[in-house]
């Protein structure tokens, strides 16, 4: 009973802590929005006073009209969905390749020595640099774009998986050993859950890498997707459409990351204890 009481008070103090950080969170949001709002306001005023030429920089209000137009015609959604579809394909392919290989490499020290230099070299090459050759090999259609995304997501996911597996607490591995786990069980029940948090960091990095690489690929060669939307608008000198495209890319990126964070905290409720000290 005494123990129960202790737990209750500790839970209470935790929720208290969480409340405090909630307050600072909403404060953070307000502070985070202040700057863009000021910029947009100045921008709007400048545009209305005709200080800037709308040909180069349309006013925020006219951009938002274009935005609404593009939404109601369904054009924006079509391009957004195309991009998201590519993103999801590429991301899942990358994750299904990178995580198993990462576990293998993390577990095998000798293997690490063999592949590390090559990987460090490949890591230096921005995904976009591969686009020409991917187009040559895979054609201008979906495959080349998906290949770029797979490449972009691979390294963050792979490297974090390796790191996560390397830093599994040897004491827990020993517990697994003393309970007679088979090698497969050891990976499933000790390595993967231990490394899950680090792997998730990799997934998040990978996804945001993907998103950027994808838009890059679409800018260079695509007939659909947000990148191509921007490129088309440039060809017709429609600055407002370009801004709608850029804005959508940024917001979609934020939402994707937010979604992944939510999934993360659902999957790993024990993670709270590590977050007591606050996060990035």
């Amino acid at each position: 009973m005494k123990g129960l009481k202790q737990i209750m008070t500790s839970i209470k103090s935790q929720t208290l802590k969480r409340n405090i950080s909630d307050i600072s969170l909403s404060g953070k949001i307000i502070r985070g929005l202040t700057f863009p709002i000021i910029v947009i306001a100045i921008w709007e005023v400048a545009a209305r006073q005709a200080i800037i030429d709308p040909y180069f920089l349309p006013s925020p209000s006219s951009i938002s009209y274009t935005y609404i137009d593009m939404l109601s015609s369904g054009l924006l959604q079509t391009h957004l969905l195309t991009s998201l579809q590519r993103l999801i394909y590429g991301f899942f392919i990358a994750a299904t390749i990178a995580i198993p290989i990462g576990i293998l490499v993390g577990k095998t020290r000798t293997f690490r020595h063999w592949v590390n230099p090559t990987l460090s070299f490949l890591q230096q090459i921005p995904p976009i640099a591969w686009i020409p050759i991917f187009i040559l090999w895979l054609g201008i259609d979906e495959a080349s774009k998906v290949a770029v995304i797979v490449y972009a997501a691979f390294f963050p996911i792979f490297l974090n998986t390796v790191q996560g597996v390397i830093s599994v607490d040897p004491k827990l591995i020993e517990v697994g050993r003393s309970f007679m786990l088979t090698p497969g069980e050891m990976i499933r029940r000790v390595y993967i859950p231990s490394a899950a948090m680090t792997i998730f960091v990799g997934l998040r990095l990978g996804l945001s890498n993907c998103w950027r690489a994808l838009v890059g690929a679409e800018l260079i060669a695509a007939s659909s997707g947000l990148g191509s939307l921007i490129m088309d608008a440039r060809n017709f000198s429609q600055a407002d459409r370009i801004f709608v495209g850029i804005f959508t890319i940024g917001v979609a990126g934020l939402l994707i990351d937010y979604l992944l964070r939510r999934i993360e905290s659902k999957l790993m409720p024990w993670k709270k204890m590590y977050q007591a000290g606050g996060q990035s």
Partner: peptide
Amino acid sequence: GPGNDRAVVFQDPRLFPWL
């Protein structure tokens, strides 16, 4: 090697934080 016939309680609890 380890066996089903023995089990260890270590000096520190060594619980799995995710379980």
